[in-house]
């Protein structure tokens, strides 16, 4: 199946990624592939790290933990952006071009009115990336309880 899977991650909201991370891990196990976690950080201090270098190190830790927990091969790819609030999609697409994944697994929120003004990142990546894109919505409440 898929050998090179890219998963964009927001370390500040890692809880919201659980479902997408599980899906990516399952796909990787199925095809004996590798998951690369891609994170985008600002060059200014953030809630996660004081510097871009520290962010990269934390993303690498995150990849190691995911690899150990899911028993899969993982990698980390950190990107810095001047204005991540706006440049996130372009930065992720540039990363996708460099990493050349055959699948991108991306967590996304439930569609709402704001998507009419600012399309979701998942939607934009699916529209513009050359790779297959799997957009993973949040789990329904019943699934969360189980």
């Amino acid at each position: 199946m898929f050998k090179n899977i890219m998963v964009p991650v927001d370390l500040a909201h890692a809880d919201g990624l659980r479902r997408a991370l599980s899906v990516a891990a399952a796909m990787a196990r199925m095809g004996d592939g590798r998951v690369t976690y891609v994170g985008v950080t600002a060059e200014t201090p953030t809630a996660i790290a004081h510097t871009p270098a520290e962010y990269r190190s934390k993303l690498e830790d995150f990849a190691r933990q995911q690899g150990a927990a899911a028993n899969i091969q993982t990698a980390a790819h950190a990107c810095a952006s001047h204005d991540p609030g706006v440049d996130l999609n372009d930065t992720l697409l540039a990363a996708a071009k460099d990493l050349a994944p055959d699948l991108i697994v991306m967590a996304s929120h439930l569609p709402n009115l704001s998507d009419r003004f600012w399309p979701s990142h998942g939607g934009q990546i699916a529209k513009r990336a050359m790779a297959s894109v799997l957009v993973v919505r949040p789990a329904p409440a019943t699934e969360d309880q189980t």
Partner: peptide, 19 residues
Amino acid sequence: MTDIPEDPTGIPLPDGPTD
């Protein structure tokens, strides 16, 4: 299980020592 590849387009490493 983890492989951390060189990162040609990501963050330049290191930023160097700071206080």
